[in-house]
Design a binder for these strands. Structure first.
Lengths: 131, 131
DNA sequence: TTTCATGCAAACCTTTTGCAGGATA
DNA sequence: TATCCTGCAAAAGGTTTGCATGAAA
């Protein structure tokens, strides 16, 4: 893959993910940028998210629950999916680093990677409940 | 939820998941059953999968990679998603049972559950590679 | 000036839903 | 016979793609 050409849209999209830190979805990014960039197209957001993911500038977080979220923090870390507000939050949790190796030991398949996320209720929604 | 009424289609769908043990998708179940049950509708497959899941007779396995798979083995266990053949396989791996509690300790969010799956290449596809 | 990126609309894929007819209890 | 379940088709939701135009190198 040859290097990407500069694109104002890609900068906008990347900066949104970088600054907002709320793991936005493609749609959330689009809706955030659209008012100030009326010409922006949702297809462009999707195309750039793919490229940014391939470049390794962002990671994609998938859950059972609807659409993918994006994160500019690319080191291995985990997320909590809030069932109430449908958002993703960072979880400070360090899993056994040997998880792949250990799964490999007990399997005849080739284990290369894993996906892990938590499900629950975020701080905000939890407090709203209590009121 | 009141008890479900008997349905020949639901039996067929459940037995397919139970016997095949290859974690079929809705579409796979539909295509397997359609030749011998030409009247069967994909909507019926989806509706029954939902009901079976709610009843607790099957579990749904979601991955980043397309559509959901179903499993009649309902105790907590893990799966490998094969990138090559797009199928899911059981992985004999016992994770730290305290994972939820440990994630909870380090978070202000309420952690209720988690999802984990492995990604790699299944035994079959691995061997095909070597040839 | 070549080639990549964009915007728009249409297509795609998986899953859900409305509705009239059919099966179950 | 009351209600649930089914089949069909249409719709929904997220994402991708074809194509002509516009921007970057």
């Amino acid at each position: 893959m040859q290097p990407l050409r500069f694109s104002a849209q890609r900068e906008l999209i990347f900066n949104t993910i970088l600054n907002d830190k709320d793991h936005p979805t493609a749609d959330a990014i689009y809706n955030k940028l659209k008012p100030t960039n009326p010409q922006l197209s949702l297809a462009t957001v999707y195309r750039n998210l793919r490229q940014l993911e391939e470049k390794g500038d962002v990671i994609r977080i998938s859950t059972q629950c609807g659409c993918d979220h994006y994160d500019a923090r690319t080191d291995k870390h985990y997320h909590l999916y809030c069932k109430v507000c449908d958002k993703m939050f960072d979880i400070d949790y360090t899993i056994d680093t040997q998880i792949i190796e250990k799964a490999q030991e007990q399997s005849q398949h080739l284990v290369e990677n894993y996906e892990l996320y938590f499900i629950g209720k975020c701080k905000n929604c939890r407090e709203t409940d209590k009121k």
